[in-house]
Design a binder for these strands. Structure first.
Lengths: 141, 141
DNA sequence: GTCGCTATGCAGTTTACAAAAGCTGAAGAA
DNA sequence: TTCTTCAGCTTTTGTAAACTGCATAGCGAC
C-alpha cells in the first residue's frame, strides 16, 4: 500500500515543469539532476506522460519536454493514472470474476469506498495548486 | 498502491471468526480451508494479530483462535495496522529526514491528506459492521 | 548534407520484497 | 505419554519494481 517510485518521480517531474515559464522546454537531464532521479527511468515515465498528452516532447538540440496543458487544467489523478493505469486497492475491485463470492465480500465493499475517496482527492487537486502550496510554504519560512 | 495478501488474509480470517458464536475456538486449518489461504502463511499473520490481542490463541487438542474482543469494538484499522504497522503512502510522510526539502514538498503534503482520509475510513468501520453488510447482501439475493 | 543532441523503444538486468513452505520446538488437553 | 495445535525461526520461491544499455529516429545547428 505505497506509492511507487515511478509515480513519485513522475509527479516531481511534472511539478518541476509546472514551475517553469509556460511553454518553455526542459531536457530530462536537467530534471533528473535537479530531483536526483535516474535519467533513463525518468525517460520511461515521461514517455507515458507524453502519450497521455500531459507533456509534449521535443527532439534534437535544445529539445526536451514542456507541459502540454495549463497546470491549472491537470489533476494529480491524471498524472498518476497515465503512469500506472487505473487504481485498484485490491484486485477484485476491478474484476469480480477473480473471487467467486465477490458479491458477498464486505471487504471488497469497504475497499471500494476507500478507493473512491482516494481517487477523489487526487482528482480534486491540480498541479497549479501544488505549486502554490510549495510557494506558500517557502515564503513563510 | 495495493493491499497485500497478508492484509487481505488477515481481514478474511478475523471476519471468519467474527461470524462464529462469540468465544468459540477455531483452528487455523479450518479458516485456511474455508477461505483458501495457505495455512502457514495465515499462521504467521495470526501471530501478529495475537500479539496485538485482537485474537487469542489456544494451544493443544481442540485449540485454535478466538476473537479477543467484541467485533463491535475492533476497527478495520486496528487489524490492518497489527499486520503491517502504521500506514504510509510514501516513505517521507513518516520520516522527514529522508528527503531534505520535505518541508517544501507539496507532494508530501497531498499524500498526507490522502493518508489521513484512508486511515479514517478504516477507523470508522468495525468488524461487526462488515459482517452486517455481508448478511444484508446475502439476504437480498 | 552531416554532426551532435535529445527523445523513442525495446530488451535486458538487478534488486527488493511479498508470498509461501519447511522445520524444530513448546504448550496444552486427553 | 501422546497427539494436536500454535510459536518462531529459516529458507525458498515468485514476481514486480527499479534501473540499465543499446540501437534507432527525429530535429536543430552549422
Amino acid at each position: 500500500m505505497q506509492f511507487t517510485k515511478a509515480e513519485e518521480y513522475g509527479m516531481l517531474g511534472v511539478l518541476y515543469l509546472s514551475e517553469k515559464t509556460p511553454g518553455s522546454i526542459t531536457p530530462l537531464s536537467e530534471i533528473a539532476e535537479a530531483k536526483a532521479i535516474p535519467e533513463k527511468f525518468l525517460a520511461k515515465i515521461f514517455q507515458s506522460l507524453s502519450r497521455a498528452t500531459i507533456v509534449r516532447s521535443h527532439r534534437g538540440v535544445r529539445g526536451g519536454f514542456s507541459l502540454a496543458k495549463d497546470p491549472k487544467e491537470v489533476t494529480v489523478k491524471e498524472v498518476l493514472e497515465s503512469i500506472h493505469g487505473p487504481y485498484h486497492l485490491i484486485k477484485c475491485t476491478n474484476n469480480a470474476d477473480i473471487c467467486e463470492k465477490a458479491e458477498y465480500c464486505s471487504l471488497r465493499e469497504l475497499l471500494s469506498i476507500a478507493e473512491r475517496k482516494l481517487i477523489q482527492i487526487f482528482e480534486d487537486h491540480t498541479l497549479a495548486e501544488l505549486v502554490e502550496w510549495e510557494k506558500a510554504k517557502q515564503s513563510v519560512s
